[in-house]
Every structure is written in structure tokens, then in C-alpha cells.
Design a protein around this nucleic acid. Structure first.
Length: 278
DNA sequence: CGGGACGCCTGTGAGC
DNA sequence: TGCTCACAGGCGTCCC
């Protein structure tokens, strides 16, 4: 599920409700990508702060009880198949529920069948594992510092394909496989185009499309949050909006040409050979 | 160093 | 029905 819009929608769905809650315990299920990185007992009595998002990560600050030391936070990632639920009556943890943060206001629960997700303790976003994981992230897509010129300049230094660069997330974060395909379609750029061959006006168009694609998804409440049980999670609201993703062989909504699928870096890329040019 | 492949896991749908 | 296979919204690590 989780590209930037889904992660942000997730954040908004629990951040205000959990802020100020007291941690009463942590329940761990099967291991995730990395170990928690601290003794779960240590977090008892900590207060939850304002949960924020960086790229596809969520950072939930935890402050130690008055006079106590060792505050920090939990860095959370949903991987490919993760989701977070927050509520008072979630029921007993199931086979894919791997972390429960028990609080005075309810349980924050990470469910993740594939276990590519993570919940990791760090002393701050600038320390430990969090710092390491966040270090190479690019601009937030809506950061005003990310200007067309800045994007163009960054692309000029790259030889890899524009699709691969978007997915890498070290120039701009947030667009995963679906939204990268959709944004490139919107901008009329062939996903196989080398970054350093993208003109300034096209970089500008791409930035505009990355932003509008992500905002639209955000407006729609993400893609599949509501109905995540479904197979590829693609039965959500964004599926109806997708113009190329998952539409191999179907006519392009703009020009009617058959949408193509190619593989780039072991990931499917969908594009319209008629509308998208190198 | 940049760039690409690999591996982590489980689940699902298609095809036989 | 049951098997095998391809594929899945991410990303750190390894190797060239």
C-alpha cells in the first residue's frame, strides 16, 4: 500500500488521537526487518508526541517521564504490505500483527504480512538507526526548496533512467511504483529516458506532475487503505484514477495506443508509447 | 562513486 | 481441487 500519500493518510488518521497518550507496554510478534533496538520495557511510562512523516517513514516521538532520561522515538515504515491501526478495541493480535504499542488511549498496531516493514527505536531522528535510514532521502515533494531548477540540476548529474531515479528517492521522496508511473505519464516522459537528457522545461513538468499526482492521491485518502485485504491492494480509490499503472495492453486514455509494460530494476513500469517520449 | 541485481517475506491470481 | 509460477505499492546491501 504505502507510498507517500498512504503513509501520510495513515499518519493523519492517528497522530492527533495518540498524541499525549502514555505508553503502557509494547507487544512484539514475529520479527520485522530490524529489531526494535531497545528493551520494550524501557518505553513504559513514556509520552507520545507529535507524529511526523519523512518520506515514507513515520516518526513518533516518545518523551521520558519527568526527570527521566532516554527520550527518543519510534521510526516506523510500512514496507510493501504494512498498515497501522489505532483503536481501543483491536482484539487479540493475529498472525500478521507484529507490533502493538499499548497506550492509555488505545493500541497502535502494525500489521504486515510480508514483514518488510519496521519499527525501530532511536534517540532522535538525527541519531542511531533513524539517522542512518533517513540520511539519503531526497527532498519532500512539496518542499518549496525543490524548484524546477533544483530538480533539473540534480537530474543532470544522473545517467540512470528517470523512473529508477524517482523510485530511488534520493532526489525527491514519496513516489513509489504507481505514482512514479503516473507522474511520468502526466509529464509525457518515457520512463526509460536518461535523467541527464531531460530538459529544464520537462523537469519542470515532471515536478508539477509528481506534486499533482501525490496531491490527488492524498485527496482521495490514498489508494487502498480501506480495503487492504484485497490481493494487490489495488482495489482502492486510486485504481480508477490510474492512467497507465496496471493497464498493460489497454488503450491509452489520451491517445488510444496500447499501454506497454517493461521491467526496470526488477519493477514493472507502465507507460504509453504514444504520449511519452524520450 | 553510480548503477543494477539480490534478498527479505507472505499472499494472490492465473494457468495448467 | 491442487499444484506451480509470476507477481506484488519498498529499500538496504552487495557487487561490478
Amino acid at each position: 500500500m504505502p507510498e507517500l500519500p498512504e503513509v501520510e493518510v495513515t499518519r493523519r488518521s492517528f497522530a492527533e488521537r495518540i498524541e499525549g497518550a502514555l505508553v503502557t507496554g509494547i507487544r512484539l510478534g514475529a520479527p520485522l526487518r530490524w529489531p526494535l533496538g531497545c528493551d520494550p520495557e524501557m518505553l513504559r511510562g513514556f509520552t507520545v508526541g507529535q507524529t511526523q512523516r519523512r518520506g515514507k517513514y513515520l516518526w513518533m516521538p516518545l518523551s521520558a517521564p519527568a526527570g527521566g532520561e532516554g527520550g527518543g522515538g519510534l521510526l516506523m515504515h510500512l514496507g510493501m504490505s504494512g498498515s497501522l491501526a489505532f483503536g481501543e478495541s483491536l482484539g487479540p493480535p493475529g498472525r500478521h500483527d507484529h507490533v502493538d504499542v499499548l497506550t492509555s488511549r488505545g493500541i497502535l498496531r502494525l500489521t504486515d504480512p510480508r514483514r518488510f516493514g519496521a519499527v525501530v527505536w532511536s534517540a532522535s531522528m538525527q541519531h542511531g538507526m533513524a539517522a542512518k535510514l533517513l540520511a539519503s532521502l531526497g527532498h519532500e515533494p512539496f518542499d518549496p526548496a525543490l524548484t524546477p531548477q533544483a530538480l533539473h540540476a540534480a537530474l543532470r548529474r544522473r545517467r540512470t533512467s528517470i523512473k529508477a531515479a524517482l523510485l530511488a528517492g534520493d532526489i525527491v521522496v514519496g513516489a513509489g511504483n504507481i505514482y512514479a508511473c503516473e507522474a511520468l505519464f502526466g509529464a509525457g516522459i518515457d520512463p526509460r529516458t536518461r535523467c541527464d537528457r531531460i530538459s529544464r522545461p520537462r523537469a519542470e513538468a515532471l515536478l508539477r506532475e509528481v506534486r499533482s499526482t501525490l496531491s490527488l492521491a492524498l485527496e482521495l485518502g490514498g489508494s487502498t487503505l480501506r480495503d487492504f485485504r484485497d490481493a494487490h491492494g489495488m482495489n482502492g480509490e486510486f485504481q480508477g484514477q490510474a492512467r497507465v499503472y496496471g493497464r498493460e495492453g489497454l488503450p491509452c486514455v489520451r491517445c488510444g495506443a496500447a499501454v506497454r509494460r517493461v521491467v526496470q530494476g526488477q519493477r514493472s513500469t507502465f507507460f504509453c508509447p504514444g504520449c511519452q517520449r524520450r
